[in-house]
Simulated scan of single mutants.
Amino acid sequence: MDFWGTITVLFRRWYVVVPAFLLSLAAAVGVYSTVPTTYVSSAVLVLTTPTTGGSLPSDPSRPNGLTNPLLNFDRGLSISASILIAVMSTPDMGTELGVAEGGDTTFKISNGGNNLESLATGPYVFIEGESLSPDAAQDIVKRVIARTRIELANRQEAVKAPKATYITSYEAVPPTVPLAQRGRKMRAVAAALGVGIATAICAAFIAESFTQSRRARREARKRADTKRTAEPPPGTAALNGRAPADSSAAR
C-alpha cells in the first residue's frame, strides 16, 4: 500500500488510531516519570614532570636547570597516563572505590576518546562520574582522583624511580558542578512514542482488514440469498414436468 493509501486508512479508522495514540502518549508520560534523572561530574588530570626534569644530575654540584612542567611534555607522560587509565578501569578498582556493578553510581576514566588503541595520545586523564545524586556524582570523581594519585606514586615506587623525578598530576579541570542528564529519559520517551505510533497504525490496518472481511462475507451471503430467491424450488420443477402426463391419463 502506498503512502496516500495508508493515510486514507488512518483517516477512515480514526476511531481506532486516536485512542491508540492517546494510550501511547500516556505510556510516554509514565516512562518519563519512572526513568530517573542522573547527574554527571567530570575532571581532567594532566601529568607533569618535576621542574628539574625526569633525571637526576650526574654531578650534584651542577643541578639540572628548572623547566616549566607545562612546557616539558614527552612520550613518557603519555605512556604513564595510559597505564593509569588501564589500572583505574579494572572491575576490581571499581569495587575498591565502592562502585557496585549495576549500582546507582558509576565512573569512567579515559584519555578523552573512545578508541582503546590510542590511549597513549597525551598526558591527560579524563574522569567522569555519574549517579542519581549530584553529591554522589561529584564524590566519586574526587575519590577516583585521589586513588589515581596513589596509583601513580605506587607505580613509580615499584620501578624504584628517584623521588625527585616523580611524575605529579595537576587538576587542569577540578571536579565540575554535577549537571542533570535527561538523555536517557528522552530516549525512553522516544522509544515509547515510536512503539505507540506503530501500534496505532497496526490497529488501524487490523480494523480495516476486519471490516472489509466482514463486508465481503455479508455481501457473499446477500448474493447467495438473492440467488436462492430467484431459482424455483426443486419440487416445483418436478411437478411441472409431470403435469401433462397426468392430464392425458385422465382423458
Rank of each mutant, 00 (worst) to 15 (best):
L70Q: 11
L71I: 09
N72S: 15
G76E: 04
G76M: 00
L77C: 03
L77K: 01
S82V: 04
I85V: 07
I85P: 00
A86P: 01
V87E: 13
P91V: 01
D92H: 09
M93F: 04
G94E: 13
G94F: 07
G94N: 07
L97P: 03
G98L: 07
V99H: 05
A100F: 10
E101R: 10
D104G: 11
I109N: 00
N111F: 04
N111M: 02
G112D: 05
G113P: 04
N114T: 15
N114K: 13
E117H: 15
S118C: 11
L119H: 01
G122L: 04
G122V: 03
G122A: 06
P123N: 02
P123V: 02
V125K: 00
I127M: 04
E128P: 03
E130Q: 15
L132A: 14
S133M: 13
P134W: 07
A137E: 05
A137R: 00
K142F: 05
K142R: 13
I145S: 02
A146H: 02
T148R: 04
T148H: 07
R149S: 07
I150Q: 13
I150E: 10
E151T: 05
N154L: 07
Q156W: 08
A158I: 07
K160V: 06
K160Q: 15
P162V: 12
K163C: 07
A164M: 14
T165W: 10
Y166E: 06
I167S: 01
T168R: 12
S169V: 03
V173E: 09
P175W: 06
T176F: 08
Q181L: 15
R182E: 13
R182W: 12
G183L: 06
K185P: 02
